[in-house]
Simulated scan of single mutants.
Amino acid sequence: MSKAKRLLDILIFVTAKKKFTAQEIADEFHISIRTVHRYILDLCDMGLPIYAEQGRNGGYTVLTSRLLPPILFTEEEAASIFLAFQSLNYYRSLPFDTEITSVAHKLYSSLQSEAKIKVDKIRSYIDFWNPKRMIDAPFLKDVLEHSIENRNLHIQYESKSGMRKKHIRPIGVYAHDGLWYLPAYDYHKKKILLYRVDRIHSILSTEKSEDEFMNLKEWFNSHEVKNPIRLHVRLTMEGVRQCKSVPYFDGFVVTQEDGTGYIDTIIDKGELSFITSLFLRLGSHARILEPKELIVGLRKQAEEILTMYQDEN
């Protein structure tokens, strides 16, 4: 039997057993104690955390029970994993940053030379660009773990009105445009709000919740228009092009034969403040027909800008 096969068998044996002695491995695999010690050193070098207990009744303990047995990947599968890792390069904060680095190192080290060349080429010729944010989100991993553990949070949060204490029920976290967001139920305002994870300054306390609540996937699929309002916009050719590159307008833009287009859909009234800035950037390439509240909001922002740049003379 090859050494690699023997190591794999021993790895599966010790991770399942958790606590063991060298004699148990020797008896199980019909090898000498000296050979067992060499294999244990090899497993430690591979990253298996094994603690040796000294003394008459000593032995070994695997320090974690969450290890997975080795998985064999094809070159294409390994390349796809590195491609997924590469998509995270532009995020300053990640919930499992150290672990991702460790996985990438282990996987790359296990590849044959031809596969390493392929992975290196992929890294050089394809990327997933996001704006490189310099903002830290130190509580990202904590918030994610508390969401999974069904815990309520008391946090210090920096909002537009200043530092505030919040009592929330986190739903999960998601990344967008280089930043991390936390949808959560606000117990004071009695509704789900969206928070920036990097604006959480501290977690003051947590408490286990007995009630089940929706998770992030369910929240994404449960978008409900509570205050419906019609959004009707005429677009130039350039307006069509720009709107199609904005995720919010995905599926709303209708393109006509001459290249111009329009948006005619129902949105939630609560989203008007968000889309006002989107249409302000479009300028004359988008003409709002409805709702009037959006037109008023655009005029107000435009007047504020004009006032700021008025010629003092």
Score class of each variant (00 low, 15 high):
Val296Thr: 12
Tyr185Pro: 12
Met214Arg: 08
Asp136Met: 12
Phe128Ser: 01
Ala4Cys: 03
Lys190Leu: 05
Lys166Asp: 01
Pro228Met: 12
Lys244Asn: 15
Lys141Gly: 05
His154Tyr: 07
Leu48Val: 15
Lys18Thr: 13
Tyr90Trp: 02
Met134Leu: 13
Ser209Val: 05
Leu144Ala: 10
Trp180Phe: 04
Val14Gly: 00
Tyr108Leu: 14
Ile126Trp: 09
Leu48Asp: 01
Asp9Arg: 01
His285Tyr: 08
Ile117Trp: 04
Phe20Leu: 09
Val254Ala: 04
Tyr108Asn: 01
Pro95Ser: 09
Lys116Pro: 02
Glu114Val: 12
Lys3Trp: 00
Phe274Glu: 13
Gly259Glu: 00
Leu43Ser: 00
Ile12Cys: 00
Asn150Pro: 11
Pro95Cys: 07
Gly239Thr: 12
Ser209Asp: 14
Trp129Asp: 03
Tyr174Leu: 09
His176Glu: 15
Glu145Pro: 02
Ile229Thr: 12
Ala104Gln: 08
Tyr91Ser: 03
Ile275Gln: 06
Val143Asp: 04
Glu290Ser: 09
Asp97Asn: 11
Leu231Pro: 12
Gly270Asn: 11
Glu53Pro: 02
Tyr108Val: 03
Arg38Val: 11
Pro49Val: 04
Val119Thr: 03
Ala175Pro: 11
Ala137Leu: 11
Ile266Val: 15
His167Pro: 00
Tyr181Val: 10
Glu224Asn: 08
Ala78Asp: 04
Ile203Met: 09
Glu24Cys: 00
Asn150Ala: 05
Lys244Ala: 07
Ala184Asp: 11
Asn150Trp: 06
Ala175Val: 07
Leu41Val: 07
Val246Glu: 13
Phe220Trp: 13
Gly251Thr: 00
Tyr174Cys: 08
Glu312Lys: 13
Leu83Met: 05
Ser202Arg: 08
Glu210Ile: 13
Asp258Thr: 03
Trp180Thr: 02
Tyr187Phe: 15
Lys226Ala: 13
Leu272Lys: 09
Thr74Gln: 05
Thr265Met: 02
Leu67Glu: 02
Tyr39Phe: 07
His285Ser: 08
Val233His: 01
Arg151Ile: 06
Lys226His: 14
Glu210Phe: 11
Leu231Gln: 03
Thr206Asn: 12
Glu210Ala: 13
Ile12His: 02
Leu94Asp: 07
Glu99Cys: 03
Ala4Arg: 04
Phe20Trp: 09
Thr98Arg: 06
Leu48Lys: 05
Tyr185Gln: 03
Asn89Pro: 06
Trp219Ile: 13
Lys269Val: 02
Lys226Asp: 04
Val225Phe: 06
Ser159Cys: 15
Ala184Phe: 10
Phe13Tyr: 04
Ser109Val: 05
Ser284Ala: 12
